[in-house]
Simulated assay, not measured.
Amino acid sequence: MFQPSVPTVDISALPADAVLLDVREQDEWDAGHAESAVHVPMSQFVARIGELPDAEPLYVVCRVGGRSAQVVQYLVAQGRSAVNVDGGMLAWEASGRALVSDNGEAFVA
């Protein structure tokens, strides 16, 4: 559930050098993701938290923003700087940002 205290950024305001953490599941990732994103599915998040980049803040994305908001809440509670990407990968695609498939090939959604 969304909490008003979750830091959020609109896709249009996402910095070009943002470190993107994609928390979608493997099948969603395989279907298309941001080329520079780090993938740690929400279902494995706590077990794989040591794999997170040291970047501050982390920009967290999922399909529409619900799961990523939960991850941001968790990270903020752990003392990390994290921001939810509002609208998730649907907003990413709608804004015309590039995606790559699981084999690394670029495509337009």
Rank of each mutant, 00 (worst) to 15 (best):
S101L: 09
A34T: 02
E35M: 11
E25P: 07
A31M: 14
V64M: 14
G104H: 05
A55R: 02
D17I: 10
D102P: 03
V100H: 09
A98F: 01
Q26H: 04
A16G: 03
R63A: 08
L52Q: 07
Q73P: 05
D102M: 14
V72S: 03
R67D: 09
L14M: 09
Q78K: 13
V83N: 12
A106H: 05
A94Y: 00
C62L: 05
G65M: 01
M89H: 04
S5M: 14
R63M: 05
A91M: 09
A16N: 10
W92V: 07
V72I: 01
D30F: 02
N103H: 11
V23W: 06
G32P: 12
V64Q: 10
V100T: 11
I11S: 07
W29H: 09
L75V: 06
E35K: 14
P7E: 05
A55M: 07
E93D: 14
P57S: 03
A37K: 07
A106Y: 01
V108D: 13
A82T: 04
I49T: 09
A18K: 05
V108I: 05
A91H: 08
V61Q: 06
V72G: 04
L99T: 02
G65N: 03
E35A: 15
G65Y: 00
V108Q: 12
V83W: 12
Q78P: 10
V85R: 06
G66M: 10
V100P: 14
V6H: 00
